[in-house]
């Protein structure tokens, strides 16, 4: 058990617990963008940065990764913390002016406009990496990656080519916090990440419901017969 303070209030937590989890439990609101309950954290967006005092030492840490320690004083709304949040939101808004997620979050912190030239080539991607982590650790195929560095960094499939391992499940699009990932189901086909997937038709209701490649993947992994998987969730 460790004991420390958040915004002046004494709190207790298990040793090794992550600060963000403790703060949320204690009712202190900290905004996040790249953190996901099931996928954990990577420390990319830096929106959850908080101020920590320990004796005379003052530092700023990403609360989504910081293991709590005895005797620290955490401030989640200090002047500098608010400056950091506003700055990051303004920067993301300049990058993704079309994202409602960013617009809404920014307006909560009083950021309504940007002082920079707005990007037109980044879409709504804030490079949080949740799609990559979901694909890798939940779906288990690793079809996505980041390429390039600096401002040119982007999420893509290897070599920008249709991925051989992608099963078209669309988990990346579901988890994307800003709705950047393009997915389209049309005329019995799904298009995602430059790859076209044939959709399976449910023998009972005759509706298209999932890419055949995805069902084959599941069948191989679980041993469940393809015949059975072809029946959609509604008709089961």
């Amino acid at each position: 058990m460790v004991e420390f303070k958040i915004n002046g209030k004494k709190v207790q937590a298990e040793k090794g617990e992550i600060l963000l989890d403790v703060a949320k439990r204690e009712g202190h609101e900290i905004p996040t963008l790249c953190h996901h309950e099931k996928l954990g954290s990577d420390g990319r967006c830096r929106l959850c940065v908080v101020e920590i005092h320990r004796g005379s030492r003052r530092r700023f840490v990403a609360s989504c990764l910081y293991p709590v320690e005895n005797g620290i004083d955490v401030y989640t709304d200090s002047r500098d913390v608010l400056l950091i949040r506003k700055t990051i939101l303004e920067l993301l808004l300049a990058r993704c002016p079309g994202s409602d997620t960013i617009k809404n979050l920014a307006s909560q912190y009083g950021v309504f406009d940007v002082r920079y030239t707005k990007d037109t080539d980044k879409g709504k991607c804030i490079l949080c990496g949740q799609c990559i982590r979901a694909c890798e650790s939940i779906v288990g195929v690793s079809a996505l990656c980041m390429s390039g560095k600096g401002p040119e960094k982007k999420v893509t499939t290897p070599f920008d080519e249709p991925s051989e391992v992608c099963i078209g499940c669309g988990a990346c699009a579901v988890i994307c916090p800003t709705g950047h990932i393009y997915i389209e189901d049309k005329d019995g086909y799904r298009t995602i990440w430059r790859k076209k997937f044939e959709l399976a038709r449910c023998p009972k209701c005759n509706r298209f419901h999932a890419p055949i490649e995805q069902l084959e993947f599941i069948s191989k992994k679980t041993g469940v017969d393809m015949e059975e998987l072809l029946i959609c969730q509604n008709c089961k």
């Binding site: 990319r44 950091i84 804030i126 490079l127 560095k149 600096g150 040119e152 960094k153």
Partner: peptide, 10 residues
């Protein structure tokens, strides 16, 4: 910049 975190990249 490697582009991983927002403040440095953006």
């Amino acid at each position: 910049s490697c582009g991983k975190c927002t403040p440095c990249r953006e």
